[in-house]
């Protein structure tokens, strides 16, 4: 950036940029406000009063707890699978020069590049074709498939930095393949993997479309939300859950940002 350029932006641009950001954030702030409203029957604004009682009500709702537990379990296992598969794939693509790397990148990105409904319906008809009953594991299977890309994107960027001469230097100094992996590769890609894992978790925790098709009778938190959206039963509880979901997804994103701040940016466009 040149220093002699005038540092301040034209007023119109400033207003448009800040207006745009406000457009992105005001709805999110509203979610936080509505969690405290005393109004039960409608979405009235401004709220007639503020209360904390809905937090207690939500706390005592077993269906919310069941959905939350299921979501966390699914996200954890899907993330673990995606971490292993995404890292293997990134390692293969960046450590070896082989012809099919473009194809591999495309294959990894496809589950997220195609609309979720296609992935969902494809998996659903494959499951019913293969006579696999819908279960916890069919949800995990679907989630892991589209989470691979997030881990892969984060890991590939970092692998590129470690590739080549650092690995040769390690082998030159007497470390075999496993020692090189443990002492050189792992410490260097560690934070990228952690960031990728966080984002994969956030992605899985929030996923609704593929889950609709692979979930059967079980409902994850987003499925629970979706039902509330279509047929509102108890709006205040939904308000509180919405706020909690928002917070739960913010934390891994912030963490991922701080983990990868210096150097590569998190692969946000991979979502």
């Amino acid at each position: 950036m040149r220093s002699d350029r005038s540092a301040s932006a034209p007023l119109g641009l400033k207003i448009a940029a800040i207006g745009g950001l406000a457009f992105l954030h005001i709805p999110i702030l509203l979610i936080f406000l509505y969690a405290f409203t005393t109004e039960e029957k409608s979405y009235q604004f401004p709220p007639p009063g503020l209360t904390l009682q809905w937090f207690a009500v939500t706390w005592n709702r077993p269906d919310v707890w069941a959905a939350l537990t299921l979501s966390v379990k699914v996200a954890t296992i899907a993330t673990a699978i995606a971490l292993v598969l995404g890292t293997l794939c990134a390692a293969a693509v960046s450590q070896t020069r082989f012809f099919g790397r473009e194809t591999i990148s495309l294959l990894v990105i496809l589950p997220i590049a195609l609309p979720g409904i296609i992935t969902g319906i494809a998996l659903r008809s494959a499951f019913s074709f293969a006579d696999i009953p819908f279960s916890f594991w069919t949800i995990v299977l679907g989630h892991a498939t589209f989470c691979i890309v997030v881990v892969y994107n984060n890991a590939v960027a970092r692998f590129r930095r470690v590739s080549g001469s650092l690995i040769e230097a390690s082998m030159d100094l007497g470390a075999d393949g496993f020692q090189t992996f443990r002492h050189i590769i792992l410490p260097n890609i560690g934070t990228a993997l952690l960031a990728g894992g966080m984002l994969a978790f956030a992605l899985s925790f929030d996923e609704v479309i593929v889950t609709t098709f692979t979930g059967g009778q079980q409902s994850t938190l987003p499925i629970w939300m979706l039902e509330e959206l279509i047929r509102p039963r108890q709006r205040p509880v939904t308000n509180v859950v919405a706020m909690v979901v928002m917070l739960v997804t913010f934390l891994p994103i912030l963490a991922a940002y701080y983990l990868t701040r210096d150097g590569d940016q998190i692969a946000g466009a991979g979502k």
Binding site: E168, A169, M171, A175, D176
Partner: peptide, 15 residues
């Protein structure tokens, strides 16, 4: 393999 040779390298980019 390189790790079984008693030969060491000073790399151009130091590595």
């Amino acid at each position: 393999p390189p790790y079984r040779r008693s030969v060491n390298t000073v790399f151009q980019d130091y590595a």
